[in-house]
Design a protein around this nucleic acid. Sequence first.
DNA 1: AATGAATGAGCATTCATTCAT
DNA 2: CATGAATGAATGCTCATTCAT
Lengths: 217, 217, 217, 217
Amino acid sequence: MARVRAVADDEKLSKRHSILDATFRLFMDNTNELPSMSAIAKASGLAKGTLYLYFRAKEEIFLALLEESFGRMLDGVQGVLAVRQESTAGFIGAFLGGYLGVLRGEPSFLRLASMTNSVLEQNLDPEIAVKFKKQLAVRLQDIGSMVETSLPHLGKGEGAKLLLHVYAITIGLWQVLDCSKKIRSMLDDEIFSVLLADYFEELPIVLGQTLKGKLAG
Amino acid sequence: MARVRAVADDEKLSKRHSILDATFRLFMDNTNELPSMSAIAKASGLAKGTLYLYFRAKEEIFLALLEESFGRMLDGVQGVLAVRQESTAGFIGAFLGGYLGVLRGEPSFLRLASMTNSVLEQNLDPEIAVKFKKQLAVRLQDIGSMVETSLPHLGKGEGAKLLLHVYAITIGLWQVLDCSKKIRSMLDDEIFSVLLADYFEELPIVLGQTLKGKLAG
Amino acid sequence: MARVRAVADDEKLSKRHSILDATFRLFMDNTNELPSMSAIAKASGLAKGTLYLYFRAKEEIFLALLEESFGRMLDGVQGVLAVRQESTAGFIGAFLGGYLGVLRGEPSFLRLASMTNSVLEQNLDPEIAVKFKKQLAVRLQDIGSMVETSLPHLGKGEGAKLLLHVYAITIGLWQVLDCSKKIRSMLDDEIFSVLLADYFEELPIVLGQTLKGKLAG
Amino acid sequence: MARVRAVADDEKLSKRHSILDATFRLFMDNTNELPSMSAIAKASGLAKGTLYLYFRAKEEIFLALLEESFGRMLDGVQGVLAVRQESTAGFIGAFLGGYLGVLRGEPSFLRLASMTNSVLEQNLDPEIAVKFKKQLAVRLQDIGSMVETSLPHLGKGEGAKLLLHVYAITIGLWQVLDCSKKIRSMLDDEIFSVLLADYFEELPIVLGQTLKGKLAG
DNA sequence: AATGAATGAGCATTCATTCAT
DNA sequence: CATGAATGAATGCTCATTCAT
């Protein structure tokens, strides 16, 4: 009996996963828009109606995707911070190296995270949105306290704030430098160079400067 | 309806402006989406067809709004930087104070600027998108060179880069802290405090730290 | 509305047919234009969106109508030619009689066929248009070879060509004599008599003359 | 005074002509649809409102174009028939040669004439449509009587009827063989050959056969 | 007479969601 | 549980025509 339930639960999870997977693939392939439910149904091999058995609305699918991506990202950061650093300089170096590594390993995070706000304000039950924010807040505080362990001169809550600033810079810079290939190919004048900088080269520079300014004397 | 014929150029400009105005109001009122042409028509007291006499497509209306807002913003920054600073510390202080003032005076800039990417990738002639990017790039370089005047140890192009980073932080932090009133009212737990920081208090802190880190020895 | 679900294939076919039927009625009632999707939806008692479950575009509805009508027409002609004739004169007589009979039994063919070109050049995937032409070409060759059986002095391919000429005359004469009732009632002068000839009387005359000229020594 | 009027009339005629000219160019350039009034205004260098001073509706512009083209065509045929032929065979040969020459010299006639019916049934004052038909009928009778002069065994009215049949075949065959270049390029199978015959080679064959059949014994 | 700004009904098509099967 | 047929409001946009200037 329990066995049967377990199997059924597995099936449920696997269907849920295939929906998320299909949605993710469609989102990455195309433009910065949520794929349509028809497209998701087709790509996941399920019927349209079935999608509504697993998610109450299109935006909830996307939010689940967002949660997964944030989760993996935060897991990575947590891993990076698990190694306690003795000096501020050591912390900055280790954090930057680790963080960039995690981000490069989760390249879709940037595109997904950039959609967060517009998704949260759309067709979503506010309760659901709040639940998402709470998860995020809890983990920020959690991982923030690990930061505070390495940087004891930080006050309570300042670790989380530091992470929030890092996150803000991460997506802010991405939005500023992101550009479709089509348009990028038309930006062949010297004047555009500042807008064409490589994101993964630029990000550690800005983050490094901010952390340095933040943690210095 | 306002069946007033805009014959002279200034009348046309004013009608154009009333379209932009209506679009702006609708955008600010509602969610993070471009209002529909029907809604814009109704809000501006014009027929739908009339909108297309002034703009070739919905996205061009929004781009015009974007250009105006960026223009005012950059004018403000240019004004701030017109006063040459002798020291790095003086520069940071003067810039931060001036910049925050300009930003507070243009509060819609943040929501508009956050839409830039999604608008530029939508139903827009790529030429138009490039033209917009060029305007921006030119002014960034231009104002960047003013930065370089105050901070002579910066190399050529580093002023523009500094401004770009400031811009990235400006919108990144905004997206991280932005939250609809409805949802904000539901975030009454202590755990949410890091997500509820006041944007205009937080921004100068992060910007200050970054500039300090960037310009320090 | 007819919220009846067409689940089985035959139910779907019948729904598809009811769309074609409604389209046909609207086309026959009104002017020489494809009816609008709104009108078709209303006339078929279905929602607009439902139409797109059965046809990918408005023009495909009409093309399906065209295919059906051509199909029935060609079936009829094939039936007529199934009886082999021994003499040229016998062939002409039998063919004319049979052809006119088929055409009278399919009176809408003339109006539909007259639209073929304009429909094929509209909003239609060229592949689809070619597919339609191919069907037509195949059947013309097919039935043409039956003609060649009755008329052994014709070379290979001349049977199809003969049918094409018959078809050209069929629709050419129809267009020349077709006239809305409203206008027809205003043509009460003797001078108009040549334009008011009865199509079904005139057609066998012209076709007979052409076939006679074509097949004579 | 009369002078001034004459000048004014000239101007009127020239404007009217430039409208027709622009419409014609646009129609020939594009697909088988009447160009829009905006396009006509732009192409003729006149304001949209001005078009309505010269024509009451879009279709009247097109009808005027049709009248001109029919007029030139019929003038040409009249010229061909002005030379009286003594024998039936002589008539057929001379007529075919002359007619094909006229048609080749007026290549737009085919596309225009094919639109006649759909234009006449659209947004047109029936009176206007009747007027057009009358002009045509009168000239058909007129030129038909010239045919009767060369072919004395024809009864009264049979000359006009012969011309009507010629016209029917002319446009019927054109519609059957007409095909956009795009689609034509996709018809590279042998099976399509019957649909790809050259119109100006095929037409005299069919016309010759019909006339032979019509005028023989 | 000429203009061209303004209109608004009309268009084909999409798509999140529902619910009978 | 799962399906997918059906919905219909909503979308961006066109265009013949009008009429104040």
